[in-house]
Simulated assay, not measured.
Amino acid sequence: MSKTNLCYLLLLLILLPSSYFLTSVLAKSRNPITDSEIKKKKSECYADIDSGLWGGHCKSSSIAKENCALKCLSPACYELIYESDPLEEGEKDYIRSQEFKYCMYKLSLGESLEGVRGSFDH
């Protein structure tokens, strides 16, 4: 191995761990999503649904529109909280609504979603 290649290898070995540390620090320093940001994004989702971007099934009823808006807002959180049991007509599910917001909060911080589902059960 040439001296130049050895220098590059040593430099790489020094910089790799520091770049990993910097990435993890930056990921942890994210700001959590706010209620107003969620509200704004959900309004944008409703506009996309109304324009037909999400297909006709999302405009078939108010509850279909709400399920599509939640999926638009956060596909990962929708899958975790609602996908196996979507909202039904007339249903108000305060607990799952709180879990969904908590899920979005954790995602915005780059945290694991472990324990989100069921975290607001009594």
Rank of each mutant, 00 (worst) to 15 (best):
G56T: 05
K106E: 07
K92I: 11
S60A: 08
L9G: 05
R30Q: 02
S60Y: 05
C72D: 12
I38W: 03
Q98V: 10
D50K: 12
L109R: 08
D121E: 00
K65R: 14
S61K: 00
M104G: 02
D85Y: 02
T4E: 15
L109N: 08
V116H: 04
T4N: 15
L70I: 09
D35E: 10
K59Q: 12
S84M: 06
D50N: 15
E66F: 05
K65V: 10
F21H: 12
R96M: 04
L9P: 06
S2L: 01
Q98H: 14
E99Y: 02
S84Q: 04
S29R: 09
I38T: 10
C7P: 04
C103F: 09
L109Q: 01
L80W: 05
E114P: 02
A47W: 10
L73V: 05
S108C: 04
L10V: 09
K59T: 11
N5S: 08
S2R: 08
H57T: 13
A27S: 12
L15I: 04
E79S: 15
R30K: 10
K28Y: 06
K40G: 12
Y8E: 08
N5P: 00
A47S: 14
I38G: 03
E99H: 05
C7W: 11
L80M: 08
Y105D: 12
E111H: 07
S24G: 13
L6T: 11
G55H: 03
L9T: 09
C77P: 01
I63P: 12
I95R: 14
G90D: 01
T23A: 15
N31G: 11
D48P: 14
K71N: 12
S60I: 01
M104D: 02
S61D: 01
Y82Q: 08
S18Q: 13
D93T: 03
R96G: 02
S2T: 11
N67A: 08
I38A: 07
T4S: 15
S108V: 06
F21C: 10
E89F: 11
G56A: 07
C45W: 01
G56D: 07
S19P: 13
V25Y: 14
S74G: 04
E37I: 05
D85N: 12
R30H: 05
K106R: 11
V25Q: 15
L9E: 07
E83R: 14
L15N: 10
E89G: 05
C45N: 09
A76Q: 14
A76S: 11
L107G: 01
N31H: 13
Y82I: 06
K59I: 06
A47V: 13
I14C: 10
W54P: 04
S24W: 13
L12A: 13
L109E: 01
S24L: 10
